[in-house]
Design a protein around this nucleic acid. Structure first.
Lengths: 165, 165
DNA sequence: GTAGCGTAGTTGAAAGCAGAACTATTCCGC
DNA sequence: GCGGAATAGTTCTGCTTTCAACTACGCTAC
């Protein structure tokens, strides 16, 4: 955000922008607003009820599902769509809470393993019902089975394009 | 995030959580991941190409569409799904760039108007093609017309539930 | 008119985050 | 085995966001 760069301001525009028509605008806005509002709502409710933000919750879930409840930092970052830096900070904070601990990786001296502690697992168990109830109330309860199917279809289609980052 | 509160830990659970089955899990994950990846991607590309984050872009768009390119702070915050505080900070930073200025509101001495400057409008004009191209490439180009319709339908349905914040 | 309450918006402190720079280890070719 | 590139992770810096005060004005009733 520090660079107010205008990119190679071309004397002639490279190509006419493919503007959105009114219908596309509506579709885009509906998607954007609903996505923002839903994520916001779920995060807020979870945080207020349990003290665990959705980002932290995702980390705990990933670890709880991993073999021996441990995972390499990079793998965990990918799984949580998080940057290395962000994950490193987040794990440090979870460590302060006693929910995660770090171990050096046996096979690779550079590597670190994030390990879910029993306390961390307990915290996750307490939070899970709150989270699932939020997803039900604000998402599944609002949609017909067909809409759910469509939502999944659109999501998976987009993932095929965006997925292999 | 500072309070690790467990909420009134009930001796007996209030109700059995309505867990997600495997299909629902997949639908939820597809939605969540695709939404995060898409927003992330659009924000990143826009920021790198123009120096304007998606959050700032939304503010500029809202102002550019408002009568006389000006809008009350609260109204603008609502329009951008932003907290008052966040918007106030953001407008201050846009003001430093010379893209927005504040005016006191004539009708209500408490009120402030955010006004888009000519420089701000020019910055928006430069950024808009980049933004629209991103939305096309990563969203509309990936979906069939039917999928777009479904996406809109789901979005609007969710909005009816989440909308009146 | 003025006390008390509600509303509009700002501010300050602390937490969170991205990106770049940095450290430490491994891998590879010779 | 050794120099250099690649990889794993952390740390540093600066920006952004949140939350909780706080200021200032308006509204209503007495």
């Amino acid at each position: 955000m520090s660079a107010h760069v205008r990119p190679t301001s071309p004397p002639a525009p490279v190509a006419e922008p493919r503007w959105l028509d009114a219908e596309e605008q509506k579709a885009w806005r509906a998607w954007l607003y609903s996505a923002q509002l839903l994520m916001d709502r779920l995060d807020r409710e979870l945080t207020h009820a349990t003290g665990i933000s959705h980002a932290y919750y995702e980390i705990l879930v990933a670890l709880s599902e991993a073999p021996e409840r441990r995972m390499r930092m990079s793998e965990l970052a990918d799984r949580c769509l998080s940057s290395r830096s962000r994950l490193s900070h987040a794990v440090s904070r979870l460590q302060e809470r006693g929910w995660v601990r770090r171990e050096v990786c046996a096979e690779d001296g550079r590597g670190q393993l994030a390990v879910l502690t029993d306390a961390g697992f307990a915290a996750l168990e307490a939070a899970a019902p709150v989270h699932v109830e939020g997803v039900r109330t604000h998402l599944f309860d609002q949609l017909t089975p067909e809409q759910v199917q469509n939502m999944r279809d659109v999501g998976e289609t987009l993932l095929r394009h965006l997925g292999p980052r």
